[in-house]
């Protein structure tokens, strides 16, 4: 038998709110540990050093791709944002085969997607 379930969530970002609001503006907002200074993007609430206190900082928004996967499921990379000490997974939008540098862009919906477009090459 057929049964359709439609759910209409009203999601709250909680402690991730600055990060989520940053993405909506096309800004990579990271968390800097108040203890050791390590910068995490995506943000970690508790740093690997064990400290739970951190401050929000805006990164320049550029990133370098270290791993990339392509295929039917899309184009994604394991990337490091400039100024961050951790990597994150990002959707790569419009990247050519040799592109390794990108910049964050606003996502097309309200969801906190991390999307990179290739940076214009310097002549």
């Amino acid at each position: 038998m057929k049964h359709t379930l439609t759910l209409d969530y009203d999601l709250a970002a909680g402690w991730l709110r600055p990060f989520v609001e940053g993405l909506a503006e096309g800004v990579a907002r990271a968390r800097r540990c108040d203890g050791c200074g390590r910068v995490s993007f995506v943000p970690l609430r508790v740093c690997d050093c064990g400290k739970a206190h951190g401050s929000w900082i805006d990164l320049p928004g550029t990133a370098t791709v270290s791993r990339r996967t392509t295929g039917a499921d899309g184009d994604f990379g394991l990337v490091t944002f400039a100024g961050a000490d951790t990597k994150t997974v990002a959707r790569l939008d419009g990247f050519g085969p040799g592109d390794r540098q990108g910049a964050i862009v606003r996502p097309p919906s309200a969801l906190p997607a991390i999307i990179l477009r290739p940076e214009p090459k310097v002549a």
Binding site: A13, L16, F19, V20, V42, T69, G71, D73, G74, F76, T88, V89, A90, R91, P107, L111, P112, A113, I114, I115
Partner: peptide, 12 residues
């Protein structure tokens, strides 16, 4: 809030 919303699949 990160991978899910970015649309990355388990396979990726």
């Amino acid at each position: 809030w990160h991978e899910g919303a970015t649309g990355v699949s388990a396979t990726a």
